[in-house]
């Protein structure tokens, strides 16, 4: 499915690239319109999902709000456009959305050939395993001899056989299903002892489909790299820079301990780095360099939060998804989230 989607998107991209190029007008358009149009998932718990009141929540959704807060000073000036996996790239290429924030894996093909460019990584995902807690499994390497439910037709099944081979787990057996719903149903009915897909998908399934989510654990090993992040159209470097530095500002804020709750007190912090971030010092206006107001990062943190706030609120250990920070911890805490200095 993924491959087909990429191929379809590639054709669409080729057709678009041949047409008139949209050069540098994106930010102007957004300002003129007075709101940001953000392409999100149609419904993936923890990443972007609408509740019964139609209010969107999730990491991808909060990233959109943060961008709006930086540009307009108002996190609510966002229109969310749900897109399917097949439509998503076309929606961005055609200008239907300004930014695509939809759990999309950053790959070379997408970055280089679809007329779009990734701005950073909001979630380091990877293929993982889920097992019933009562089996007492602590590591995916213990799964030799187990039956593992997997959906066919994606890179998931290839990663699985590679992992089993590399670890000499010849007695493990993959049970292959055509649709993801069939695979999860088989796993929860007890047909398989383990289920494998992207870790965020595991957490999402566990919170949604398991009778008692606490009965299942997600094993620590990730056997593939799936960095997810927002992407923008090529051709407007200013907007690209804004989106990129909004992500960095959220990470930087967490690093300096500036969060949604204490951001107003932190305005009085003597730390020059915090002062620069929050735009307190008029002589050191970082926002101007990006074409934004001086308090752009303050608005992001005040209205949406720092990276840790967003993570904990949407997918963290206290949410139904119960995902530990893992790779998504700050670099200073053993993770991969790292921001270049804001100076």
């Amino acid at each position: 499915m993924k491959k087909l989607a990429i191929a379809a998107a590639a054709f669409a991209a080729a057709a678009l690239v041949a047409g008139p190029a949209l050069a540098g007008k994106d930010l102007d358009n957004i300002r003129k319109r007075g709101s940001l149009v953000c392409g999100v998932n149609t419904g993936l718990a923890g990443f972007s999902i609408a509740d019964t009141q139609g209010r969107w929540t999730g990491i991808d959704v909060d990233v959109c709000r943060a961008i709006a807060a930086a540009i307009f000073g108002d996190a609510n000036k966002v229109q969310f456009k749900p897109t399917s996996a097949q439509q998503r790239f076309q929606a961005l290429q055609s200008g239907e959305v300004d930014v695509l924030s939809r759990n999309t894996t950053w790959t070379l093909t997408r970055d280089a050939s679809l007329g779009m460019i990734f701005t950073g990584v909001t979630f380091y995902d990877g293929q993982g395993f889920m097992v019933a807690k009562k089996l007492g499994v602590k590591s995916a390497r213990e799964l030799d001899g187990a039956e593992i439910c997997v959906q066919s037709g994606t890179t998931t099944e290839l990663n699985l056989t590679d992992f089993l081979k590399a670890n000499n787990m010849g007695k493990a057996k993959a049970i292959v299903f055509e649709k993801i719903e069939e695979a999860t149903a088989a796993f929860f009915s007890g047909r398989c002892q383990a289920y494998t897909t992207d870790a965020s998908g595991l957490a999402s399934t566990r919170s949604k489909d398991a009778k008692n989510p606490d009965d299942f654990v997600i094993l620590p090993e990730l056997i593939s790299k799936e960095p997810l992040g927002p992407a923008v159209r090529r051709g407007d470097e200013e907007f690209f820079a804004i989106v990129k530095w909004v992500l960095y500002a959220m990470v930087e804020a967490e690093e300096y301990g500036v969060d949604r709750a204490n951001v107003d007190q932190m305005k009085g912090s003597p730390n020059p780095a915090v002062k620069r971030l929050l735009g307190v010092d008029a002589k050191n206006d970082m926002g101007k360099l990006l074409g934004l107001k001086a308090d752009w990062a303050y608005q992001v943190i005040k209205q949406v939060g720092n990276y840790g706030d967003i993570y904990d609120r949407n997918v963290g250990p206290k949410t139904p998804l119960k995902l530990e920070r893992g790779l998504n911890a700050l670099w200073s805490k053993g993770g991969l989230q790292y921001a270049p200095p804001i100076r």
Binding site: E147, V150, E157, L158, L160, T161, A174, V176
Partner: peptide, 13 residues
């Protein structure tokens, strides 16, 4: 590289 769970003849990815 694909997994096959049920085969009469020996199968390896």
């Amino acid at each position: 590289g694909i997994p096959i769970s049920d085969s009469i003849i020996p199968w390896d990815p």
